[in-house]
Write a protein that binds this DNA or RNA. Structure first.
Lengths: 390, 390
DNA sequence: AAACTTTGTTTGTAAATTAAACAAAGTTTG
DNA sequence: CAAACTTTGTTTAATTTACAAACAAAGTTT
């Protein structure tokens, strides 16, 4: 007979609750799980034994007694499956093989010279195949593939527009699903970065967070109430095109005075060229400028301060609008932390609403260049763990 | 014996589901409820009979047959309880008595001349008492009181700061709860307005919406995924203090170039005085200016266009950030629709990201000056209907 | 008028949680 | 050091709830 739908849902939810409690509080005893979740000890016991059968949970040795029988500690088994995550950037592809803990086991970066899809796609396929071949044997094998792209991505995983890659309307998700017969997730790179920083970027989960991905362009991922917010069509967060100066510099997007034109890596490069600090075809412009600043070149230092101030302006807007707990700065420009942060922090301190500064932290991305890849891994893993029909 | 928690929750959720289906699709038969919710016919029958006992649902006559036995139509009974909602503004208090449908049965506006709490509070109490006395007899009586204030309100209902009222740290919620022994809800006026427009402002519920309350100041309420977003400490949405011009006009908040300094009613008045269009102590400045504009006073028309353009700048930022389905403009300045909208729409059309314009509508608040009051009613009613322990 | 349809109720069953008893393995205390 | 207490984890019986299926009621169609 078919399962009675709602009872089934209750069980599934409780099982998921038990599993995520074990993941978050590992190692933990059955008794503590029961106390934390509010479920009955018996219920926890039976659900845990199912999870052990499914190889998602393991018993480790006995723990410390607290005045009675010693508890049997439970561990989440992150080795029962693997995910492959890709950070598909402009000029590079970063691929990573992770276990279900999100820990990176293998990784590979490829420098790309052409960005057109027909060149990139075969490279991508081969990269995924190589990573997959290097994955250890496991019960569930490859549980999914996640790809982060600097693009406007629809809710259905379609790449609608990637200006810097010059891509338009590409069904990457369904192509990869056909190729590898496993679930595929495609997301905006800043959204993925935000999620990665929330999940793996610190001791405790961050409920309300703004992740500013400041590279060639600026993207912002928003975590609101512990959930990624992505708007009606799945392409919110184009905060880079927020007006910060009326009748300001023209932007490709058609607007004037966009934040991105003042506070991105591209803006830094453009200004540096204009001011004869670097050559137009400089290979590593950011490194060049950073070393000049370290050599006390005052005009370069001033330029960094200018850019920092503009970053501060945009972040202040975000803070006033969202009142987040954390602001996390990631992607390439965050490498110039030393030169930029003082002016960023100064602007925010002087201009953001006082209330909103009370519980606010501003940090550099803890995962460095792996924010996006880790976020995509988290999406993939959670989709697998939370939506199992079992 | 105590209820087994999770089974209880399932039943409660299903009952709530049945009830909201009846509310949203009224009139509807048991069979249709079963089909819409996916619940079994028997389950629906038993839940409906409980709801009828609780006087929340009524049977009306038989409906149209569709080739078989005629269905018994079910109606939501909005008369089994009443809520009182208050829009506590600067210079006025608007109070309304509503039924559980959110329909306003009685209302009263009081013009206040002093805004200090010790003067306003007794007036407020008397207003609520008068409205309560006028309420019909009903099973549940006064199910709650909702108050919308132009203030930063904490999650616990404390008024932290209301600059225009010059209030600070006022425990309005607990005071009123002691006074009237019923649940009390205090919310920011723009948040309430957003919620009101979502619930009662049109045929279908709006999932992603920005409600801009443009009065003396500017507040913005955000509905994201059908939920009011209010940030970590419950005081997000101070979008009025978003920088739109670097090194621009100074604001009381301490920042420079805040949106509110360019696009609010106060900004309109300030500029009009500066340009000698109205006197400094003009009683109804907005009406004055509107009639001047209607008399083809070009410089006044230009001023409205300027303000409209600035409103457009801020709204464009919101659109680019949130990618909402609807932008709704409410509060006093929305009365000047005629003079402002062309320039607002023009700016947005020319500057917002194209993708985000695809499914976007920009509207004037459908509920006019009742957005806030209706939103507070919705909060109160839903808290009652959805959180009954029964 | 007989056959079919749709609505709504009733009845027996299956699934899942819970409480409570019990077993196991420590710790504390007199 | 043994008896008493504590904590952990399992087992069992009871309870709750939803569901499927049968049934009753009230139409429509042929």
């Amino acid at each position: 007979m078919k399962r009675t739908w709602n009872q089934h849902v209750v069980k599934q939810e409780n099982k998921t609750l038990v599993l995520s409690t074990i993941i978050n509080q590992t190692p933990i005893s059955r008794a503590s799980v029961a106390q934390l979740t509010g479920l009955n000890k018996g219920t926890v016991s039976s659900l845990v034994s199912e999870l052990i059968n499914e190889e998602l949970v393991e018993e480790s040795g006995p723990g410390e007694s607290s005045g009675g029988r010693r508890p049997v500690m439970l561990l989440f088994n992150g080795k029962s499956g693997y995910s492959i995550s890709i950070d598909l950037g402009v000029g590079y592809i970063l691929g990573a093989l992770t276990d279900l803990n999100g820990d990176i086991l293998e990784q590979e970066t490829i420098q790309t010279h052409a960005n057109d899809f027909d060149t990139v796609y075969p490279t991508l396929i081969k990269l995924i195949e190589r990573l997959n071949n290097r994955s250890p044997k496991s019960r569930y094998g490859l549980i999914g593939i996640g790809v982060g792209v600097p693009a406007v991505v629809g809710h259905d995983g379609e790449i609608l527009l990637a200006p810097n890659l010059k891509w338009k309307k590409i069904q990457l998700k369904s192509k990869l699903e056909t190729e590898f017969s496993c679930p595929v997730f495609v997301e905006n790179e800043a959204n993925a970065g935000a999620y990665g920083e929330m999940r793996y970027g610190g001791k405790h989960v961050k409920r309300d967070m703004i992740y500013a991905s400041i590279g060639i362009g600026i993207g912002v991922g928003m975590i609101l109430d512990s959930q990624l917010y992505s708007g009606l069509n799945g392409f919110a967060g184009e905060v880079g095109h927020m007006t910060v100066e009326k009748d300001g510099r023209p932007c490709q997007c058609g607007n004037l005075g966009c934040w991105e034109r003042y506070a991105s890596l591209q803006a830094l490069i453009d200004e540096a060229i204009k001011r004869d600090m670097i050559a137009e075809n400089e290979e590593a412009p950011l490194k060049q400028l950073m070393s000049q600043a370290k050599e006390d070149n005052q005009s370069v230092i001033d330029l960094f301060e200018e850019i920092g101030t503009y970053i501060g302006i945009g972040l202040t807007n975000c803070i006033n609008i969202f009142n987040p707990e954390y602001v996390v700065i990631g992607n390439q420009l965050s490498e110039a932390e030393e030169m930029l942060y003082p002016s960023i922090l100064r602007y925010i301190k002087e201009h953001a609403i006082g209330f909103h500064q009370r519980d606010l932290s501003i940090e550099r991305a803890k995962l460095g260049s792996h924010s996006t890849v880790s976020g995509m891994a988290a999406f993939t893993i959670e989709a697998f763990l939370l939506n199992r029909e079992n």
